[in-house]
């Protein structure tokens, strides 16, 4: 049982997350600033959390994280992005719980959520690397990377998340009826 997620929605979001992961590994490096590119998969999880709440966000974050952990250029321990994106989905879902249920989130909310989620997600990933001895850079380098990725994610969230929210809304049961 997928809980609040229908099998259709879960697979659709995971497909989107997989596509985002592919774009992230093959397209984003060309846009990267000092190697730091946008986290597209993270933004998909943020959108899912904002659309459907913490429970869905948690599950989808885990799934998308595992995908991100396994897709080829990844060399870190599997499960690190799963943990991080799980937290991201949860945080975004909590933001969703505080919004009016019948309204789409405002752009300011989206930006704030994306910034917070990006910071939390990249930090969790980086800290897990530090704890597990999987990281190669020092704390100072990590901070720079985290801040750069927050800037990237906020910039892309303004463009992407509203589109994603609209797409996810089409998966709503009410709409599909």
């Amino acid at each position: 049982m997928t809980g609040p997620l229908g099998a259709l929605r879960a697979s659709a979001v995971l497909a989107i997350a997989a596509l985002a992961t592919l774009l992230q590994v093959s397209l984003a490096p060309h846009l990267a600033w000092r190697g730091v590119g946008p986290d597209l998969a993270l933004l998909v999880v943020v959108a899912a959390g904002l659309a459907w709440g913490a429970h869905s966000g948690l599950l989808l974050g885990f799934g998308a994280g595992v995908v991100l952990d396994l897709v080829p250029p990844a060399d870190h321990l599997v499960g690190r992005w799963a943990l991080a994106l799980m937290v991201v989905g949860y945080v975004a879902g909590r933001v969703r719980a505080d919004l009016r249920p019948d309204r789409r989130p405002a752009l300011g909310t989206i930006v704030a959520t994306a910034a917070a989620c990006s910071f939390v997600g990249t930090s969790v990933f980086a800290l897990s690397g530090l704890v597990l001895g999987d990281a190669t850079t020092g704390v100072g380098g990590l901070l720079g990377v985290i801040l750069a990725s927050v800037v990237w994610d906020v910039a892309l969230a303004v463009l992407l998340v509203p589109v994603l929210l609209r797409a996810l809304a089409r998966l709503e049961p009410e709409h599909a009826r």
Binding site: A54, H55, F62, Y90, A97, P101, R103, E172
Partner: peptide
């Protein structure tokens, strides 16, 4: 309809399991 609030917070067991 925008979303629904069927389960605003995931059960703790799910968090732990994940």
């Amino acid at each position: 309809g925008w979303g629904d609030d069927r389960e605003p917070t995931p059960p703790r067991s799910l968090v732990v399991a994940l």
